[in-house]
C-alpha cells in the first residue's frame, strides 16, 4: 500500500502541472495567438506546396507583373508566376530552413555544452573560450563568413544559420549542467556504475532540457530572420526556388510596377516570425516566471 501511494504521488503531481502549463499558455493572450500563428505556419510549411492554385514555378509571359485579381489573388511576378502560389510554396523553404537550422544549432550547441560542463577542468575552459570567440561575431556575420567559404545554397544556409545559435546553446546548457551535475541523482547514477555517456545523455540531459526547449522556441523567429536575410543578400536559397527572402530581393527591383510582389512574402515572413516570437514569450512567461524580461 505504502509503495503504491509513494509511486503514484509524483505522477499525480507532475501530470496536472503539465496540463495546466499548456492551459495557462492557452489563456495567455499573446502566447495563444503565437501558438495559433506558429501552428498555422508549420501547417502551411507541410501542406502549403499542395494548396497552390497554380504551379509556383510555371512562367506565363502573357501575364507579367499583374496586379491582384480574382484569378491571381496576389498578382503575378516578373515571369508571370502566381505570387500567391509562390508564397505558399515558399512557406516550406523558409520555415523549413528556419526550424531545421534551429534544431541543428540546438543539437550541436546542446551536446557541446553538455560535454563541456560535464567534463569540466581544461576542456571546459578551452571550449568556453571558443564560445567567446564565436560570440564575438555580431549577428549575421559568422553566417556570412561561412557562406563566403562554402558558396550559396540550401544546405549552406541551414548550416550557417545553425552556427549562429551554437555558442548560445552551448553556454546555456553548460550553465545548467554545472548546477545539475553536483546533485545527488548524478552521484547515485555514477555509484550504480553508469558510464559517462549514459550519465550525460540519460541523466543530465533530461534535467537541463526544459530551458533549452523554451529558448529554442524563442529563437526560431530570429533564426528564420537570419536565414531569410541570407537569401535576401543572395547568399542563401537561389532563384527560381520560392523562398520569402529571395522573393523580396527580386521584388525590390519591381517595386514601382508591382508592389504586391514585395508585400506578400514580406507580410508572410513577418507574421511567421511574429508567431514564433509570441509563442516563445508566452512559453517563457508560463514555464519560467523568473526569466520574464
Amino acid at each position: 500500500m505504502a509503495e503504491v501511494a509513494s509511486s503514484a504521488k509524483p505522477d499525480a503531481r507532475v501530470a496536472p502541472r503539465r496540463r495546466s502549463a499548456f492551459r495557462r499558455l492557452l489563456r495567455h493572450p499573446s502566447g495563444s495567438l503565437g501558438l495559433f500563428l506558429s501552428l498555422l505556419f508549420v501547417a502551411l510549411a507541410v501542406v502549403g506546396p499542395y494548396l497552390t492554385p497554380f504551379d509556383a514555378d510555371r512562367q506565363n509571359y502573357l501575364k507579367l507583373n499583374q496586379a491582384p485579381s480574382a484569378e491571381h489573388w496576389l498578382g503575378t511576378d516578373q515571369f508571370g508566376r502566381d505570387t500567391f502560389s509562390r508564397v505558399l510554396a515558399g512557406a516550406r523553404t523558409s520555415i523549413g530552413i528556419g526550424v531545421a537550422a534551429k534544431l541543428l544549432g540546438a543539437l550541436v550547441g546542446g551536446v557541446w555544452g553538455l560535454w563541456s560542463g560535464y567534463a569540466g577542468s581544461w576542456v571546459d575552459a578551452v571550449s568556453m573560450r571558443l564560445v567567446d570567440v564565436l560570440l564575438a561575431f555580431p549577428g549575421l556575420l559568422l553566417a556570412i563568413g561561412l557562406i563566403a567559404i562554402t558558396g550559396p545554397g540550401v544546405g549552406p544556409v541551414i548550416v550557417a544559420s545553425a552556427v549562429f545559435g551554437v555558442p548560445i546553446f552551448a553556454r546555456l546548457v553548460r550553465g545548467s549542467v554545472l548546477g545539475a551535475k553536483e546533485r545527488v541523482f548524478i552521484e547515485a547514477a555514477r555509484g550504480l556504475g553508469a558510464g559517462h555517456v549514459r550519465i550525460m545523455f540519460g541523466h543530465l540531459l533530461p534535467a537541463v532540457i526544459a530551458p533549452v526547449i523554451v529558448y529554442a522556441t524563442l529563437r526560431i523567429g530570429v533564426t528564420m530572420l537570419v536565414a531569410a536575410g541570407l537569401s535576401f543578400l543572395g547568399l542563401g536559397v537561389q532563384p527560381p526556388t520560392a523562398e520569402w527572402g529571395s522573393m523580396l530581393s527580386q521584388a525590390q527591383l519591381y517595386l514601382r510596377l508591382d508592389p504586391w510582389m514585395a508585400f506578400a512574402p514580406g507580410i508572410a515572413i513577418t507574421l511567421a516570425v511574429l508567431g514564433f516570437n509570441l509563442l516563445g514569450d508566452g512559453l517563457r512567461d508560463v514555464l519560467d516566471p523568473t526569466l520574464r524580461a
Binding site: 499573446s30 523567429g221 530572420l225 531569410a228 536575410g229 535576401f232 527572402g245 523580396l248 530581393s249 514585395a262 514580406g266 515572413i269 513577418t270 516570425v273 511574429l274 516570437n277 509570441l278 514569450d281
Partner: peptide, 10 residues
C-alpha cells in the same frame, strides 16, 4: 513586437 519580428529588408 512587430518591429522586432519584421525583417529589416522588408
Amino acid at each position: 513586437i512587430l518591429g522586432i519580428s519584421a525583417p529589416s529588408f522588408f
